[in-house]
């Protein structure tokens, strides 16, 4: 501290002597060193006061009292600075924890897109924050059936991510891709209803595809309706269902429906983050997705997903407000 006092006095008296810009510059660099050494604002003022006293032995008492007053009021300023630093350190701890949690979640929810011969599948899932509240689960045991679950936990961030790991294990225990979609939803609904908080809900769309007959069977629990494009009539249909969100009623029942997937057809599964156009009510989001899909239907399913994502991102000025997931199954 004595060293700092001496140097400060030197810089200050140099400046008072000639008012050079270079001494101001030196002074500013010097304060950076003081900050590094954790010199507090009230100490800076005390150093300044002492230096002035030493340079001028005829300083009026009123000026010195003025400095005493400033030291006193700056104590709280110094406390705020320290509090800020300690909160920054805490924030850094939390950030590191989040990063680890994100890595764990990514490992946990890792799922490869299956590549069967007769159908083309694409997927994109982008979290809004670090952790994803959307999840896509594929099951394909290289046999006849392939199934896809697109899930959205109502809520975002860490709580949604924790809930999601449970949904994943629920799906894992069902093991085989040939289960009936309505049965899958009923089983998951009971598990979720029992184990999660009343304020948490999960929407899920479950699709099973029979590779030998090209029949796609689907069921939905309060999920954003999927879009079916019929290549023959060149038109889109909403795959609507009245199934309740998972986790509300233990005895909820779900129905399932079939559709034949012919060459040139495709189905778009998505979460509500895709169609949510908050503050942009002039857009009909589902129409925009239809137009984008139609214009790009010559691309692979994966490329279509990516085009939809990048175009919607542009429409939202690159500020999407929810987790974003699209899956396309294309014949």
């Amino acid at each position: 501290m004595e060293q700092i006092r001496k140097q400060y006095k030197k810089i200050l008296s140099d400046y008072i002597g000639n008012q050079n810009e270079s001494d101001l510059y030196i002074g500013q660099n010097f304060i950076k060193r003081m900050i590094q050494k954790n010199v507090t604002p009230e100490e800076v003022i005390s150093i300044h006061k002492q230096a002035l006293e030493e340079v001028y032995d005829d300083l009026p008492d009123s000026v010195l009292h003025g400095y005493d007053f400033l030291i006193e009021v700056m104590v709280h300023f110094g406390l705020k600075v320290q509090e800020h630093q300690s909160l920054l350190a805490k924030q850094e701890e939390l950030r590191i924890e989040m990063e680890i949690a994100t890595k764990i979640q990514n490992l946990l929810l890792e799922n490869e897109i299956p590549k069967p011969r007769s159908v083309d599948i694409g997927m994109i899932s982008v979290p809004l924050r670090k952790m994803n509240g959307d999840y896509v689960h594929f099951m394909h045991d290289d046999e006849r059936f392939l199934s896809v679950a697109v899930t959205d936990v109502v809520g975002k961030g860490v709580p949604a991510a924790l809930c999601m790991s449970m949904v994943k294990y629920g799906l894992d225990t069902l093991e085989y891709a040939n289960s009936n979609p309505s049965y899958v939803l009923e089983v998951l609904n009971r598990t979720i209803e029992k184990s999660i908080d009343d304020s948490m809900f999960v929407s899920l769309c479950y699709v099973r595809y029979d590779l030998s007959t090209n029949v796609l069977t689907w069921s939905s629990a309060g999920h954003e309706p999927s879009l079916y494009y019929d290549g023959e009539s060149e038109s889109f249909y909403d795959l609507e269902s009245k199934g309740l969100l998972l986790g509300i009623l233990p005895e909820a029942k779900y129905t399932q429906q079939d559709l034949d997937l012919k060459n040139g057809d495709f189905v778009i599964l998505m979460t509500d983050g895709v169609t949510d156009f908050r503050n942009k009510e002039e857009f009909d989001s589902r129409e925009i997705i239809k137009e984008l899909a139609l214009a790009n239907r010559h691309l692979t399913a994966q490329e279509m997903c990516e085009v939809i994502y990048s175009e919607l991102q542009k429409l939202h000025d690159f500020k999407l407000e929810d987790d974003f997931t699209v899956v396309i199954i294309k014949k």
């Binding site: 100490e43 005390s46 030291i71």
Partner: peptide
Amino acid sequence: FNDVDQSRITT
């Protein structure tokens, strides 16, 4: 105590 510490103690 010096001036700064006096202020801190008082605070």
